[in-house]
Structures are given as C-alpha cells and as structure tokens.
Design a protein around this nucleic acid. Structure first.
Length: 161
DNA sequence: CTGTGGTCCAGGC
DNA sequence: GCCTGGACCACAG
C-alpha cells in the first residue's frame, strides 16, 4: 500500500506522520513542516483534543521483540495518565533502563504514547526536545476533562510560538 | 544530598 | 565475543 505523508503543528514544532491505511509507519518532530495531511485523529490530538490514538496500528508493535512488548504496555496508558519507567518494566519483566531505551527508539511517538512514561522522581527524557513532552503532558492534564484544550493551555501554546 | 550496584539490550569494536 | 553506555531505580551513608 502507498505510504502517505504530511504534517501538522504542535506548539513550536511540526509533527511529520507517515502512514498507510490504519497503520502508522513513523512519527517524528521537526522544526519545519512538509506537504500533505495527517490522519484527522492525529490532527485533533495535536490540537489538544482528548483523542484516543489506540485505534491506529503502529509498526513498532507488529513483531514480538522485547521492545514490542514494552510498546504494547505503554499503549495501554490512558489519555491524561502517566506511568513510570519502573512500573512498565515490572509489567513486562525487564529493567527500567531497557524501557528508557525502547522509548528513545520509539518510531511512532503519540501513537505509542511514550510521553506518558515518566521517571519516578521527575519527567524523564524526550527527544528531540523535552519541551514537547512537557507540552503534551500539560495538554492532556488540562484537556482530559472536557475533551478539549483549556484556555490556559491554549495561552501557553501561543506563548511559546 | 551524593554514591553505588543492579539491570539488560544495542551498538561499536 | 567483550565493553560501554543509557529518556532508570532503590538503598545505603
């Protein structure tokens, strides 16, 4: 199947999405946009709506490698909630550092919501920029109630743009 | 607060 | 094969 691509905005950043049908092949963050659309739920999610992206299939959980088990566990974290590296590690019987490695190599962030995996004593890491993780967590915390972004977070997004 | 040992996979050699 | 380095954690001083 042909792979489509496009981008939408998320705060300062552009989200590039590569997909075909219901399968997301790659998601990445960049400072510039590309031509083309992204699937509607992804655009809504980036705009702060409490959209569940679990209905998409990610190439990351297709096989049965150690990482794919981690990705499946991470995908179960509901919108607005977080889990720690250690909690995920215990769920799939591995170590917290391995969970960190899996998150760092996640080919489809947002679809595999690695931003919801935080350190026991802090936010943890995120590439390419920790601000993205912070923004996503803020958006989900504020947006979880009405299913849309609050004026306060909206202000924050405009602030950093 | 700051070590430090445990953990386990990937990547470089 | 061996070595090293992580988006970490718990526990000792």
């Amino acid at each position: 199947m042909e792979i489509l691509s496009g981008s939408c905005r998320l705060g300062l950043w552009h989200v590039h999405v590569y997909w075909s049908g219901n399968t997301i092949h790659r998601v990445r963050f960049a400072t510039t946009g590309i031509d083309g659309d992204v699937p509607t739920p992804v655009r809504q999610f980036c705009a702060g709506r409490a959209v569940n992206l679990r209905s998409f299939a990610s190439v990351a959980i297709h096989d049965d490698t150690p990482y794919s088990r981690i990705y499946r566990a991470v995908q179960e974290i509901p919108y607005g909630k977080t889990a720690t590296y250690g909690e995920i590690a215990r769920q799939v019987s591995t170590s917290p550092r391995v969970v960190g490695q899996a998150m760092a190599r996640n080919a489809t962030p947002l679809v595999i919501p690695c931003h919801r995996v935080v350190a026991a004593g802090g936010i943890g890491g995120f590439s390419p920029a920790i601000e993205i993780k912070q923004l996503l967590l803020d958006m989900e915390r504020k947006g979880v109630r009405k299913g849309r972004i609050s004026p306060r977070v909206n202000y924050y997004i405009q602030e950093i743009q």
